[in-house]
Nucleic acid binder design. Structure first.
Lengths: 146, 146
DNA sequence: GTGGGAATTAGAATAATTCCAAAGAAACTT
DNA sequence: AAGTTTCTTTGGAATTATTCTAATTCCCAC
C-alpha cells in the first residue's frame, strides 16, 4: 500500500501524535481516500468520496482534516491560479502540471539536484519554508506514453 | 521609465491593438500604477491607488483591465496559496518569494539556464504554457542586504 | 462515571472574484 | 455627420471556496 512517497498506515497515528493530535476515523478515511486515488482531488471531491464511508461527515470537517494533514506534513496542498486547492499525498519532491483542457493535475518528479539548484537562487536572508514549481498547459496524448 | 523587463509606454497601445483591444485611460493608468510601485499589489490595492486618478472607476473594471493586461502578456498574475492574486509588470523570467511575516512578495531573478532545466523535466507530451516557481517563508533582515 | 480538552458538526459569514445587463465611448460606414 | 457595430465600463447581484462560530459529541485521565 505505501511506497517511498507516502506514510504507511501504521505511522499515520504516530505522526499525528507527534503533533499532539489524535487519529480519528475522519482523518484516517480522508487520508486513505487521498492514497487510494491519486488524482489531486479538491476538498469538495474529497467530501463527495468520504461520504460513501462516513455519510454524516460535514464539509467543515473535511476542510479541518485536510488542513490538519497538511499541517503535519502527511499531505501537500496544491494551488493553481484561482482554482480550488487540491490535495496530494505524494511527499517526494515533485512539481505539478495542470492540464487546462482536461482539468487534471499530474505529479512531475523532480531530479533531486534540481530542487537544490532552485533553492540556491534565493539571495541570503531569504529563508524558504516551501517551494512550489507548477506548470500549466496541455497534454498531447498522441505524443505521450500516457 | 521602461527597462528590459517591461513594455515601454509607446508599445502599450500597440500590444493591445495586436489583440484587437483598445488602449483606454483605465488600462493605461492601471498599467502605470503597476510600473510605478513594483510591490505586487492585489486587485483591491490597485483599485485603491487608481481611484486617486480615476475616482469613478469600478472594482469590476480593475479586474477586467488586469485580466486584459495579463491576457496580452503585459503583466503577470502571481498566486500564493489562498491569497488574493497579485500583479506584476516584470516580464523577465523570475520566481516569486512570499514573506509570510511581512506579507510582501519579492521577485527573484532566474538564471536563464535554470528555467530551461526546469522545463526539461516535463515528460514528452506535456506542453507547458506557463511556469511558476514560488517560495514561501521569512526574510531575515540582519542577514540580507535588504 | 465525571471533567476537560480535542474533534466534529451545521450553518452563518466572509473574501475574492465573476457575472450580468445597461449605459457609454470609439471606430467604421455610408 | 447620423447610424451601426463593437468594445468598454459600471454597479450590483451572484458565485465559489473557504473560514468562522457556537453547540454538541467524543475520548481519555482521573
Amino acid at each position: 500500500m505505501s511506497d517511498s512517497t507516502t506514510v504507511p498506515q501504521e505511522n499515520f497515528a504516530q505522526t499525528l501524535a507527534d503533533s499532539g493530535l489524535r487519529s480519528t476515523p475522519q482523518r484516517e478515511v480522508i487520508y486513505s481516500i487521498l492514497l487510494n486515488k491519486r488524482d489531486h482531488p479538491t476538498a469538495d471531491e474529497v467530501y463527495a468520496r468520504v461520504k460513501a464511508e462516513l455519510p454524516t461527515i460535514s464539509l467543515a470537517t473535511v476542510y479541518n482534516c485536510l488542513e490538519t494533514l497538511v499541517g503535519c506534513n502527511l499531505v501537500r496542498a496544491v494551488n493553481f491560479d484561482r482554482e480550488p486547492t487540491r490535495y496530494c499525498p505524494n511527499l517526494r519532491p515533485h512539481a505539478h502540471f495542470h492540464d487546462d483542457e482536461a482539468g487534471s493535475t499530474h505529479d512531475i518528479d523532480l531530479p533531486p539536484d534540481l530542487l537544490d539548484r532552485v533553492k540556491a537562487i534565493l539571495p541570503p536572508g531569504y529563508n524558504a519554508s516551501s517551494i512550489e514549481i507548477s506548470f500549466r498547459g496541455r497534454t498531447v496524448p498522441e505524443a505521450a506514453n500516457n
